[in-house]
Amino acid sequence: MLNGIAGRIDRTRTAVARATLLPLLVRAGIGLAFLAAMLVAWPATLVVSRYVVLLAVAAVYPAFAPRGRGVTLTVLAVVGGWIVDTTWYDARIALWRLLVIATMLYAGHSLAALAAVLPYDALVNPDVISSWLVRAGVVILGSAVLTVVALGLTAELAGGAFVLATLVGLAAAVGVTLLLARLLRRP
């Protein structure tokens, strides 16, 4: 037991001594992005209470384990907080909050994908990080434009939901998911 703890401490010390700057910055970016998304998504009353510690822990965890399932769970926690805030607490769907959440979630997800394949002690060519960030930025910009346009449209076309539209929407959702999964099996 004691040996195990001592070994772990030794390993941590070696890891800290060997770590290089850019992988650390990438991991810090993951933590910050998810933390921002978490704080914006959850209801303000919870964010200012002591439960914020739990939220912060859940947000920062992927920075330490970007290879695990923690990233998915954190994203789901953010989405859950957003749904709770807009239904239970009946908050208004503000454009800036939606933009920040979508941007930060994708940034955190993309940086976690990078950190998952980037060893913490690697000597990183800065071009790798910059081109990665540029690519993520283009995706974020595209979806931000889409968000602004779509929210504007829905505000004008607002009306009651009906069953047929829901069914068509469900089919479209399943179709998009299957299409993404099938992209892989292309020859």
């Binding site: 957003w82 959440i101 889409l146 968000t147 779509a150």
Partner: peptide, 9 residues
């Protein structure tokens, strides 16, 4: 719209 960046990416 939250799913949009993931799908576009």
């Amino acid at each position: 719209l939250l799913a949009a960046p993931f799908a576009i990416g």
